[in-house]
């Protein structure tokens, strides 16, 4: 009886020991792989964004990106769990996946906005611009990663999203799509932040405050019913103030 007990005890000890050794060895590797996979998924969502022409698809992509970012932020804490560490991912999930998409959908319904995004250039040109800038950003990040210790794929994906956000703002007419573009830009900053400042979580936490702007934009659209005063959600209507 004593023998069996001691045997089982040692086996359990061995298992736990092995697991922790495995975990400590593979943890960094798994983290890296997960980070890269999530970043590539993020890039794919950007491609989808550049070919779709429906406002609703933008909202779906934003939700998808929100989920990716949440997973990315939760993942490092699986090893050493703490309640505090869950606050940021939980906030992010609530704001980016539930609150803002819901609000955008509500505005689209309430103000009866047309369903297309009204691009100013052809979709295929837009896609080419994005592919071109993505290639350049990846090459530059790869070159830079030789001199500094950075994770190339998340870094470059984040930066691409920043560029795509700006392109969306430049090449689309509707104000609500501009807000979506700003959100893409902000998601990019987040991804980029997790790649750069993982040892300084405070800065990433502060980044959530950018969402305050988004909420203000949406409130501005909703309260002022811009469709009625600025005759539509076009930037072309924003032409009163000129030199």
């Amino acid at each position: 009886m004593v023998f069996i007990q001691s045997c089982s005890h040692s086996i359990i000890q061995l298992m736990i020991g092995n697991f922790s050794v495995l975990a400590s060895l593979g943890y960094k590797l798994i983290k890296n792989i997960m980070q890269n996979v999530l970043s590539i998924l993020f890039c794919l969502s950007l491609f989808y964004l550049s070919v779709t022409s429906r406002v609703k698809a933008y909202v779906t992509v934003l939700q998808f990106q929100g989920v990716l970012l949440t997973v990315l932020l939760v993942f490092p804490f699986i090893g050493h769990f703490s309640i505090y560490a869950l606050i940021l991912p939980a906030t992010l999930f609530f704001v980016k996946v539930i609150l803002i998409p819901k609000y955008i959908k509500k505005i689209i319904l309430d103000l009866d906005i047309k369903r297309t995004i009204e691009p100013t250039i052809q979709q295929i040109t837009f896609l080419l611009i994005i592919i071109f800038s993505m290639t350049i950003i990846f090459i530059i990040s790869n070159v830079l990663s030789k001199s500094t210790d950075i994770e190339t794929i998340p870094f470059a994906s984040g930066f691409t999203a920043i560029a795509v956000g700006i392109f969306v703002i430049i090449y689309r007419k509707k104000l609500i799509v501009h807000v979506a573009g700003f959100l893409v830009l902000e998601n990019g900053i987040f991804l980029f932040g997790t790649a750069v400042a993982s040892e300084l979580p405070m800065m990433i936490e502060i980044g959530v405050l950018l969402d305050v702007f988004v909420v203000v934009f949406l409130m501005g659209i909703a309260i002022n019913k811009i469709s009625s005063t600025l005759s539509g959600f076009d930037v072309t209507a924003l032409g009163r103030l000129k030199d």
Binding site: F182, L185, F192, L210, F213, G220, L238, R240, L241
Partner: peptide, 26 residues
């Protein structure tokens, strides 16, 4: 309407600017 347009432009441009400053800090 002019005021609304001015506010919208200012807010949008500055928030993109603030986002850029954040990248600079990163």
């Amino acid at each position: 309407e002019e005021a609304l347009e001015a506010m919208w432009k200012y807010l949008f441009l500055v928030s993109v600017g603030i986002a850029f400053a954040f990248i600079g800090i990163l």
